[in-house]
Structures are given as structure tokens and as C-alpha cells.
């Protein structure tokens, strides 16, 4: 796999009509690393990705990728990038196979080389038997895999995946995740935007949590969970807020309203003590579980991911 010196976003800002939708985002992406932008709809994830490959012109800041500066040299930089946008912009005029061979032409991959590469990629994304199908005949998951295949024609050093599994069924998501991990294993640097915390937790080495265009925290998924929430939480129904407040204060725990009940963190040291106290209140429903990124988001932003 070719080595690249990494991609770095420097202080990216973007405003539309004086409303800042991205505010000072900086990060870097290394080979073989999956960095996730996790945040609710409207957090600025897609705008940020647009600034990485040049269709969104930053109000301030820039992206450095190898020798290229983006947006000024975006077209040249894209020769080493693979981009999966949210739109399914496959070519309905061509078959599955020709979607790849004809797009390869833009990378100066032509003739037999284009056919060979298209064949390899169709095998990789498990669409070999659909080569002659029209794009419209493909399922949603197949289309996403074909868009990914198209983004890999040029053996890219970095791949941007903007909400790649939105709208896919669980099986199709698993298939897609397998491909993403395969790319990572081959040394690709991957930037993934998602609002699915399981996707972020499963795939990403590092996460940037976004809210209203700002990075509110970052780190590995396990580090973020451990640091912000701890190991475990309890979901409680049928215990009053006042009672939980008292318990939380006594144990240095954090709690907040959640659904029709409350969520409360259990201390890493001796969680049984607090757990026992909660049980003693005879809650209508009580669930003890591992803390997750959803809890992190809830604590940091006061809102759930959607």
C-alpha cells in the first residue's frame, strides 16, 4: 500500500449567511486509521467532509494532504482520494460493470486495465454476479457497495465515507463494515461520518464528537466512554428525580432524565453500593448495562444522537 504523509485539517470554518455551521475543526488522519465524525444531523459532518475534498470552500482554514492544499489543489488531491458521498450518484445510463470502467477513465485507467480493476473491485464488494445489471436493479446495500467500489478504483490513500450505511438493513451494514475494516487493514486512512454510535464504536480508532459545528470532545471510543461516563450505567424507571439526585450526590454519580425514566452512572469503584441503593427504592424497571457512546453524547450535549 502506498505510504502517504497523512491528511491534516487546519482550523476549518464554514459560514452560510453569517451562520457558522463548522467552527474551528482541526484533526489529522493517518494511514491505517479510521477517524469518525460522530454527531447528530446538522452537526456539520457533511460540510466538514465537503471541505476535505473541495466541494465546500472553507470560510477559514485549509486541508493539507501530501503535497496538495485543499481547496486550491482539490482536483489533483482527489487522484489519491476515494469519496463516498451521501448521494447515490451512480450512473443510471450504464451497467454495474461500466459504472466502474467508465469512471476509471477519469483516473486515466483505460482499456484492459480498467476492466481488470473493475473485476477486482466487483469481487471485493461481492457484486461479481451483478456486473451486467442496471444500477436501478440493485438494492440499497448493493448500490452503496458499488459507490464504494467506484471510490476505490484509484487505490486511494484516504477514503471519506459520509454516512455510508444510513438506510441499510443490519446485514447490509455488516457487509459494509467488513469492507471498511478490509481497507483499514490495507493501510488506507478512513474518515467516516455517522450518527450511529454502534458504527462509530465498532469501526473507529478515534472519534471527534461534533455538536453545532464544534468538536466537543475527542478520543478513542473506549477512552471517551471511560472518561466521560465510566464503566456502567443504570436505566431506572419509577424512582423520582429527587431521590435519584440524592443518590447521585452521595456517590458522585451523574444522572439525567432519559426516556420515561432516568439514566445514572455507576461508580467504577464499588458500583454495587449504589446499585443496591437504587434497588432498595423498588424501581418499576431497572437495567444495568455497559456505558456507551450514546451516554457520552447525552452527558456532553444534553441531547441524544438522531
Amino acid at each position: 500500500m502506498p505510504h502517504f504523509p497523512g491528511l491534516t485539517a487546519y482550523d476549518l470554518w464554514k459560514s452560510y449567511n453569517d451562520v457558522a455551521v463548522v467552527q474551528g475543526i482541526s484533526f489529522s488522519l493517518q494511514p491505517g486509521e479510521i477517524v469518525g465524525l460522530l454527531g447528530p444531523n446538522g452537526a456539520g459532518k457533511t460540510t466538514t467532509v465537503g471541505m476535505l475534498f473541495g466541494t465546500v470552500i472553507p470560510s477559514r482554514g485549509f486541508v493539507q494532504f501530501g503535497p496538495w492544499q485543499i481547496p486550491a489543489q482539490a482536483a489533483q488531491a482527489r487522484a489519491q482520494m476515494g469519496i463516498v458521498t451521501q448521494d447515490d450518484n451512480l450512473d443510471p445510463d450504464f451497467t454495474v460493470f461500466k459504472n466502474l470502467t467508465h469512471f476509471a477513465h477519469h483516473y486515466r485507467i483505460t482499456g484492459q486495465a480498467a476492466k481488470r480493476r473493475a473485476g477486482e473491485l466487483l469481487a471485493l464488494v461481492n457484486l461479481e454476479d451483478r456486473a451486467t445489471a442496471q444500477v436501478e436493479e440493485l438494492s440499497g446495500g448493493m448500490k452503496r457497495r458499488l459507490v464504494l467500489a467506484r471510490a476505490l478504483l484509484n487505490h486511494p490513500q484516504v477514503v471519506f465515507l459520509d454516512e455510508p450505511t444510513t438506510g441499510l438493513d443490519p446485514d447490509a451494514r455488516q457487509d459494509f463494515w467488513r469492507l471498511v475494516l478490509h481497507l483499514k487493514a490495507n493501510g488506507c486512512g478512513i474518515l467516516l461520518t455517522t450518527h450511529y454510535m454502534d458504527e462509530a464504536q465498532r469501526l473507529c480508532d478515534r472519534l471527534l464528537l461534533l455538536q453545532r459545528g464544534r468538536v466537543i470532545d475527542e478520543g478513542t471510543p473506549t477512552d471517551l466512554i471511560a472518561r466521560v461516563i465510566g464503566r456502567e450505567v443504570a436505566e431506572v424507571e419509577g424512582v423520582s428525580g429527587d431521590q435519584l439526585n440524592e443518590l447521585a450526590q452521595g456517590y458522585g454519580a451523574w444522572y439525567r432524565a432519559f426516556g420515561s425514566g432516568h439514566l445514572i452512572t455507576l461508580p467504577d469503584q464499588n458500583p454495587e453500593a449504589l446499585w443496591g441503593q437504587i434497588e432498595a427504592h423498588h424501581p418499576r424497571r431497572l437495567l444495568r448495562r455497559q456505558a456507551n457512546l450514546e451516554d457520552v453524547f447525552l452527558r456532553l450535549t444534553g441531547s441524544v444522537l438522531e
Binding site: F53, T55, A75, D87, N89, D91, F103, H106, Y107, A151
Partner: peptide, 17 residues
Amino acid sequence: FQKTWQALLTAPLSYSD
């Protein structure tokens, strides 16, 4: 509708191209 322009702009093609 087809978003062909948008797709082409994920390749190493400039707006002018």
C-alpha cells in the same frame, strides 16, 4: 437528478473540466 456532475467532482476532475 442523476447528480452526474457531483459524481464527476469526486474524481480528479476540476469544475472547469
